[in-house]
């Protein structure tokens, strides 16, 4: 019953809210518009935009040390999460049966375990630092904590259901997945999409000035 609901109607509703919401948010950025830059560029903006999208995956050499924590914890979390989302065996199965119609080879159990450990350690460290560091305390909002908290609960319930022994645990995980999907477009989780635009805008502007940003 519970499982049918969270994998049925609620899942479809959540997926719809997610897709429509994300599209709406991206459209809102496009709608805000951008004035044409009339200055004479040194180099073209578009290649600079693409370059910066990739270049910002690592901090500048000079900034490696100040960014070390965020980089290590951030990558531990993000890479771990991607492996979990895309390569956990039950996820591949779900994607194959319910979303795409085809699947791929899931990660072996030890990879899953490693990914989960990295993801949990990274997320916990980032979240705790948000609560402890004076700078982060000053700039963090409720949204930051809800987004982080929901992600943590989704990962946590996912691991509880890992053994696939009880439908209830699977349903619990799915419930929080649905909630996360619904919350996503209204929150800062949107950075998962908009970071490309932000880096692109900055990369283009700076490339026009002849600076690789």
């Amino acid at each position: 019953m519970f499982l049918d609901f969270v994998e049925g109607p609620l899942w479809y509703a959540a997926a719809a809210v997610f897709l429509v919401g994300v599209a709406w948010r991206l459209a809102a950025i496009a709608r805000a518009g951008l004035k044409e830059d009339l200055s004479v560029p040194r180099t073209a903006g578009a290649p600079g935009a693409v370059a910066t999208v990739f270049r910002r995956f690592l901090p500048h050499r000079e900034f490696m040390r100040p960014a070390a924590f965020q980089m290590v914890a951030g990558y531990a979390f993000h890479i771990g999460l991607f492996v979990l989302v895309l390569f956990a065996a039950p996820h591949v199965e779900f994607i194959e049966q319910r979303i795409l119609g085809f699947g791929w080879t899931p990660a072996p159990h030890w990879v899953f375990l490693l990914a989960a450990n990295f993801a949990f350690a990274g997320l916990l460290l980032l979240w705790l630092r948000r609560m402890l560091d004076p700078v982060l305390r000053r700039i963090s909002t409720l949204d930051d904590h809800i987004g982080t908290g929901l992600t943590f609960v989704v990962m946590f319930t996912g691991c509880m259901a890992l053994f696939e022994s009880h439908d209830f645990l699977r349903a619990l995980h799915m419930l929080f997945v649905d909630l996360l999907l619904i919350y996503f477009p209204f929150s800062r989780l949107m950075h998962a999409f908009t970071f490309i635009l932000s880096r692109g805008f900055t990369g283009a502007t700076m490339a026009r000035k002849g600076v690789s940003a």
Partner: peptide
Amino acid sequence: DARIVSYFSSCVHCG
């Protein structure tokens, strides 16, 4: 403009 809306949407308050 689009840049600023995108920038605020992207900021994850990493500090």
